[in-house]
Design a protein around this nucleic acid. Structure first.
Lengths: 102, 102
DNA sequence: CTGTAATTTAGCAAGACGGCTAACTATTGT
DNA sequence: ACAATAGTTAGCCGTCTTGCTAAATTACAG
Protein backbone atom coordinates (compact mmCIF):
# COMPACT_ATOMS: atom_id res chain seq x y z
CA UNK A 1 0.00 0.00 0.00
CA UNK A 2 1.35 3.40 -0.93
CA UNK A 3 -1.10 5.03 1.49
CA UNK A 4 0.32 6.01 4.85
CA UNK A 5 -1.48 4.91 8.01
CA UNK A 6 -4.50 7.01 8.80
CA UNK A 7 -7.18 7.27 11.45
CA UNK A 8 -10.23 5.17 10.66
CA UNK A 9 -12.62 8.13 10.79
CA UNK A 10 -10.63 10.06 8.22
CA UNK A 11 -10.34 6.96 6.11
CA UNK A 12 -14.07 6.35 5.98
CA UNK A 13 -14.75 10.00 5.28
CA UNK A 14 -12.52 9.82 2.26
CA UNK A 15 -14.03 6.51 1.22
CA UNK A 16 -17.46 8.03 1.35
CA UNK A 17 -16.30 11.03 -0.61
CA UNK A 18 -14.78 9.07 -3.44
CA UNK A 19 -17.69 6.63 -3.59
CA UNK A 20 -20.29 9.41 -3.65
CA UNK A 21 -18.37 11.16 -6.40
CA UNK A 22 -18.30 7.94 -8.40
CA UNK A 23 -22.02 7.39 -7.96
CA UNK A 24 -22.80 10.95 -9.00
CA UNK A 25 -22.90 10.14 -12.70
CA UNK A 26 -25.73 8.16 -14.25
CA UNK A 27 -23.46 6.31 -16.69
CA UNK A 28 -21.31 5.07 -13.84
CA UNK A 29 -24.30 3.86 -11.88
CA UNK A 30 -25.48 2.16 -15.05
CA UNK A 31 -22.15 0.43 -15.49
CA UNK A 32 -22.43 -0.95 -11.98
CA UNK A 33 -25.91 -2.27 -12.65
CA UNK A 34 -24.93 -3.82 -15.97
CA UNK A 35 -22.01 -5.49 -14.27
CA UNK A 36 -24.29 -6.84 -11.60
CA UNK A 37 -26.90 -8.16 -14.01
CA UNK A 38 -24.30 -9.84 -16.16
CA UNK A 39 -22.83 -11.86 -13.38
CA UNK A 40 -20.41 -9.36 -11.84
CA UNK A 41 -17.63 -9.57 -14.41
CA UNK A 42 -17.25 -8.18 -17.91
CA UNK A 43 -14.52 -7.17 -20.35
CA UNK A 44 -14.05 -3.45 -20.96
CA UNK A 45 -15.19 -3.81 -24.54
CA UNK A 46 -18.44 -5.51 -23.59
CA UNK A 47 -19.17 -2.68 -21.21
CA UNK A 48 -18.22 0.02 -23.70
CA UNK A 49 -20.41 -1.61 -26.36
CA UNK A 50 -23.47 -1.11 -24.15
CA UNK A 51 -23.07 2.64 -23.79
CA UNK A 52 -23.79 5.55 -26.03
CA UNK A 53 -20.56 7.32 -25.30
CA UNK A 54 -17.19 6.63 -26.86
CA UNK A 55 -14.91 3.95 -25.60
CA UNK A 56 -12.34 6.34 -24.10
CA UNK A 57 -15.12 8.04 -22.19
CA UNK A 58 -16.22 4.70 -20.81
CA UNK A 59 -12.63 3.89 -19.92
CA UNK A 60 -12.53 7.04 -17.85
CA UNK A 61 -15.75 6.14 -16.08
CA UNK A 62 -14.29 2.74 -15.32
CA UNK A 63 -11.23 4.45 -13.89
CA UNK A 64 -13.36 6.55 -11.56
CA UNK A 65 -15.25 3.48 -10.37
CA UNK A 66 -12.01 1.65 -9.89
CA UNK A 67 -10.42 4.49 -7.90
CA UNK A 68 -13.49 4.42 -5.72
CA UNK A 69 -12.92 0.73 -5.13
CA UNK A 70 -16.34 -0.15 -6.53
CA UNK A 71 -14.85 -2.35 -9.22
CA UNK A 72 -11.62 -4.28 -9.58
CA UNK A 73 -9.77 -5.00 -12.77
CA UNK A 74 -7.70 -7.98 -13.81
CA UNK A 75 -5.86 -8.34 -17.08
CA UNK A 76 -6.62 -11.39 -19.14
CA UNK A 77 -4.62 -11.44 -22.32
CA UNK A 78 -5.46 -8.34 -24.24
CA UNK A 79 -8.71 -7.90 -22.44
CA UNK A 80 -9.33 -6.28 -19.10
CA UNK A 81 -11.98 -7.85 -16.96
CA UNK A 82 -13.79 -5.55 -14.61
CA UNK A 83 -15.41 -7.09 -11.60
CA UNK A 84 -18.05 -5.56 -9.39
CA UNK A 85 -17.03 -5.12 -5.77
CA UNK A 86 -20.35 -5.48 -4.01
CA UNK A 87 -18.89 -5.48 -0.53
CA UNK A 88 -17.39 -2.08 -1.03
CA UNK A 89 -20.69 -0.64 -2.20
CA UNK A 90 -22.65 -2.21 0.61
CA UNK A 91 -20.22 -1.24 3.34
CA UNK A 92 -19.57 2.36 2.32
CA UNK A 93 -23.09 3.29 1.27
CA UNK A 94 -24.59 1.17 4.02
CA UNK A 95 -22.54 2.93 6.68
CA UNK A 96 -23.73 6.27 5.39
CA UNK A 97 -27.30 5.12 5.38
CA UNK A 98 -27.14 3.88 8.96
CA UNK A 99 -26.93 7.50 10.04
CA UNK A 100 -30.49 7.99 8.92
CA UNK A 101 -32.22 4.72 9.69
CA UNK A 102 -34.97 4.32 12.32
CA UNK B 1 -48.10 18.64 -7.61
CA UNK B 2 -46.85 20.48 -10.67
CA UNK B 3 -45.23 17.27 -11.94
CA UNK B 4 -47.20 15.36 -14.57
CA UNK B 5 -47.85 11.66 -14.06
CA UNK B 6 -44.88 9.49 -14.88
CA UNK B 7 -43.94 5.82 -14.93
CA UNK B 8 -42.56 4.61 -11.62
CA UNK B 9 -39.30 3.37 -13.09
CA UNK B 10 -38.52 6.72 -14.67
CA UNK B 11 -39.52 8.47 -11.49
CA UNK B 12 -37.16 6.46 -9.31
CA UNK B 13 -34.34 6.85 -11.80
CA UNK B 14 -34.70 10.58 -11.60
CA UNK B 15 -35.02 10.45 -7.83
CA UNK B 16 -31.80 8.51 -7.64
CA UNK B 17 -30.10 10.93 -9.97
CA UNK B 18 -31.01 14.03 -8.03
CA UNK B 19 -30.25 12.42 -4.67
CA UNK B 20 -26.85 11.16 -5.81
CA UNK B 21 -26.02 14.58 -7.19
CA UNK B 22 -26.97 16.15 -3.86
CA UNK B 23 -24.85 13.69 -1.91
CA UNK B 24 -21.86 14.26 -4.16
CA UNK B 25 -20.60 17.24 -2.17
CA UNK B 26 -19.04 16.88 1.27
CA UNK B 27 -20.60 20.08 2.61
CA UNK B 28 -24.05 18.86 1.71
CA UNK B 29 -23.49 15.51 3.39
CA UNK B 30 -22.21 17.41 6.39
CA UNK B 31 -25.33 19.55 6.50
CA UNK B 32 -27.46 16.40 6.58
CA UNK B 33 -25.43 14.97 9.44
CA UNK B 34 -25.53 18.20 11.42
CA UNK B 35 -29.27 18.34 10.93
CA UNK B 36 -29.59 14.79 12.15
CA UNK B 37 -27.41 15.29 15.21
CA UNK B 38 -29.24 18.44 16.20
CA UNK B 39 -32.63 16.84 16.26
CA UNK B 40 -33.61 17.02 12.61
CA UNK B 41 -34.55 20.68 12.43
CA UNK B 42 -32.50 23.88 12.29
CA UNK B 43 -32.78 27.46 11.09
CA UNK B 44 -30.78 28.39 8.00
CA UNK B 45 -28.60 30.73 10.03
CA UNK B 46 -27.69 28.06 12.55
CA UNK B 47 -26.64 25.80 9.72
CA UNK B 48 -24.70 28.51 7.91
CA UNK B 49 -22.91 29.43 11.14
CA UNK B 50 -21.43 25.93 11.32
CA UNK B 51 -19.80 26.01 7.92
CA UNK B 52 -16.66 27.61 6.60
CA UNK B 53 -18.27 28.88 3.44
CA UNK B 54 -20.32 32.03 3.06
CA UNK B 55 -24.00 32.14 3.83
CA UNK B 56 -25.09 32.41 0.19
CA UNK B 57 -23.06 29.35 -0.63
CA UNK B 58 -24.78 27.46 2.16
CA UNK B 59 -28.13 28.69 0.89
CA UNK B 60 -27.33 27.16 -2.46
CA UNK B 61 -26.37 23.85 -0.87
CA UNK B 62 -29.64 23.88 1.03
CA UNK B 63 -31.46 24.48 -2.23
CA UNK B 64 -29.82 21.45 -3.81
CA UNK B 65 -30.74 19.27 -0.85
CA UNK B 66 -34.24 20.61 -0.92
CA UNK B 67 -34.66 19.97 -4.66
CA UNK B 68 -33.49 16.43 -3.99
CA UNK B 69 -36.20 16.09 -1.38
CA UNK B 70 -33.67 15.31 1.34
CA UNK B 71 -34.76 18.28 3.43
CA UNK B 72 -37.97 20.27 3.71
CA UNK B 73 -38.26 23.91 4.60
CA UNK B 74 -40.93 25.79 6.53
CA UNK B 75 -41.00 29.50 7.14
CA UNK B 76 -41.27 30.66 10.70
CA UNK B 77 -41.31 34.41 10.92
CA UNK B 78 -38.12 35.68 9.40
CA UNK B 79 -36.40 32.38 9.88
CA UNK B 80 -36.51 29.36 7.65
CA UNK B 81 -36.46 26.03 9.38
CA UNK B 82 -34.93 23.18 7.47
CA UNK B 83 -35.98 19.71 8.42
CA UNK B 84 -34.24 16.49 7.56
CA UNK B 85 -36.30 14.07 5.50
CA UNK B 86 -34.93 10.73 6.68
CA UNK B 87 -37.51 8.66 4.85
CA UNK B 88 -36.44 10.06 1.54
CA UNK B 89 -32.79 9.27 2.20
CA UNK B 90 -33.52 5.78 3.40
CA UNK B 91 -35.90 4.90 0.60
CA UNK B 92 -33.90 6.26 -2.32
CA UNK B 93 -30.43 5.24 -1.18
CA UNK B 94 -31.77 2.01 0.30
CA UNK B 95 -33.41 1.03 -2.98
CA UNK B 96 -30.15 1.60 -4.79
CA UNK B 97 -28.26 -0.43 -2.26
CA UNK B 98 -30.65 -3.36 -2.52
CA UNK B 99 -29.26 -3.97 -5.99
CA UNK B 100 -25.99 -5.00 -4.45
CA UNK B 101 -26.90 -6.78 -1.27
CA UNK B 102 -26.30 -10.52 -0.73
C1' DC C 1 8.79 -9.23 -37.29
C1' DT C 2 4.36 -7.42 -38.69
C1' DG C 3 -0.30 -6.66 -38.45
C1' DT C 4 -4.46 -6.39 -35.91
C1' DA C 5 -7.44 -6.36 -31.88
C1' DA C 6 -8.31 -4.51 -27.13
C1' DT C 7 -7.79 -0.92 -24.36
C1' DT C 8 -5.72 3.17 -22.32
C1' DT C 9 -3.55 7.80 -22.44
C1' DA C 10 -3.24 12.58 -24.05
C1' DG C 11 -5.18 16.67 -24.98
C1' DC C 12 -8.82 19.84 -26.06
C1' DA C 13 -13.40 22.29 -25.77
C1' DA C 14 -17.96 23.01 -23.67
C1' DG C 15 -20.51 23.09 -19.83
C1' DA C 16 -21.49 22.31 -14.81
C1' DC C 17 -20.14 23.43 -10.16
C1' DG C 18 -18.93 25.92 -6.12
C1' DG C 19 -16.81 29.80 -4.08
C1' DC C 20 -17.29 34.80 -3.39
C1' DT C 21 -19.45 39.74 -2.91
C1' DA C 22 -23.14 42.81 -3.60
C1' DA C 23 -27.81 43.65 -3.88
C1' DC C 24 -32.45 42.41 -2.92
C1' DT C 25 -36.78 40.71 -0.14
C1' DA C 26 -39.32 39.90 3.80
C1' DT C 27 -40.36 40.12 8.71
C1' DT C 28 -39.94 42.10 13.26
C1' DG C 29 -39.22 45.80 16.67
C1' DT C 30 -39.38 50.77 17.98
C1' DA D 1 -41.99 55.00 8.92
C1' DC D 2 -37.16 53.26 9.94
C1' DA D 3 -33.72 50.33 11.15
C1' DA D 4 -32.20 45.84 11.97
C1' DT D 5 -32.38 40.83 11.34
C1' DA D 6 -32.77 36.52 8.48
C1' DG D 7 -32.26 34.77 4.38
C1' DT D 8 -32.25 34.51 -0.80
C1' DT D 9 -31.03 35.98 -5.55
C1' DA D 10 -27.87 37.68 -9.09
C1' DG D 11 -23.74 37.67 -11.22
C1' DC D 12 -18.86 36.79 -11.76
C1' DC D 13 -14.84 33.73 -11.94
C1' DG D 14 -11.77 29.88 -11.47
C1' DT D 15 -11.79 24.83 -11.31
C1' DC D 16 -13.52 20.25 -12.17
C1' DT D 17 -16.05 17.15 -15.21
C1' DT D 18 -17.20 14.92 -19.32
C1' DG D 19 -17.57 14.47 -23.98
C1' DC D 20 -14.79 13.93 -28.15
C1' DT D 21 -10.76 12.43 -31.50
C1' DA D 22 -6.17 11.01 -32.25
C1' DA D 23 -2.18 8.67 -30.71
C1' DA D 24 0.12 5.31 -27.82
C1' DT D 25 0.32 0.73 -25.50
C1' DT D 26 -0.04 -4.23 -24.99
C1' DA D 27 -0.86 -8.91 -26.47
C1' DC D 28 -1.75 -12.30 -29.69
C1' DA D 29 -1.59 -14.50 -34.52
C1' DG D 30 0.67 -15.56 -38.74
Amino acid sequence: MAEPRRRDAAKSLEDLDVVCAALAHASRRQILLVLKYRGGEMAAGDIAARFGCSWPTTTRHLGVLRDAGLIDVVRAGRQRLYRLNRDRMVSVVGDWLKNFES
